[in-house]
């Protein structure tokens, strides 16, 4: 079973995405902020995909992506970030930080799952 690591400061988003993924047969790990996520990465968490929000209190998503990419174990980890139309501009920044792709919020379950299928085999 593939495991998807979700990082978002919104409990609503975390719950809704993990519901969708759960139904589609993915396991999920969750963190409410970048610091918590980094702690789990530092501890060597085994995941197949990271999905993170960009706008979070404390370290933001872009910093998270940059730091995860620096860890040798996660050099090639697919990373998707959640974004909204109004944040179009930040895609470039996040890509430069090492993200693989993005999911535009709000996404339907199909859009979400399709995007995930695109980056993990």
């Amino acid at each position: 079973m593939k495991t998807v690591f979700l990082v978002d400061d919104s409990a609503t988003i975390l719950l809704s995405i993990s519901n969708i993924l759960g139904k589609a047969g993915y396991a999920t790990e969750k963190a409410g902020n970048a610091e918590e996520a980094l702690k789990k990465f530092a501890a060597g968490i085994k995941v197949d995909l990271l999905i993170t929000d960009l706008n979070m209190p404390g370290k933001n998503g872009i910093e998270l992506i940059r730091e995860v990419r620096k860890l040798p174990a996660y050099k090639f980890l697919p990373i998707l970030f959640l974004t909204t139309e109004s944040q179009q501009s930040r895609k470039l920044e996040a890509k430069a930080a090492g993200a693989s792709g993005w999911i535009v919020k709000p996404a339907t379950a199909d859009e979400l799952l399709n995007t995930i299928k695109l980056v993990i085999r």
């Binding site: 990419r69 050099k75 090639f76 980890l77 697919p78 990373i79 890509k95 090492g98 993200a99 693989s100 792709g101 399709n114 299928k117 695109l118 980056v119 993990i120 085999r121």
Partner: peptide, 17 residues
């Protein structure tokens, strides 16, 4: 592309879908 966490094969697979 690999360093961005993308696997070219996953594109092909997805195209197949």
């Amino acid at each position: 592309v690999l360093r961005g966490g993308m696997d070219p094969l996953s594109f092909l697979r997805f195209l197949g879908s």
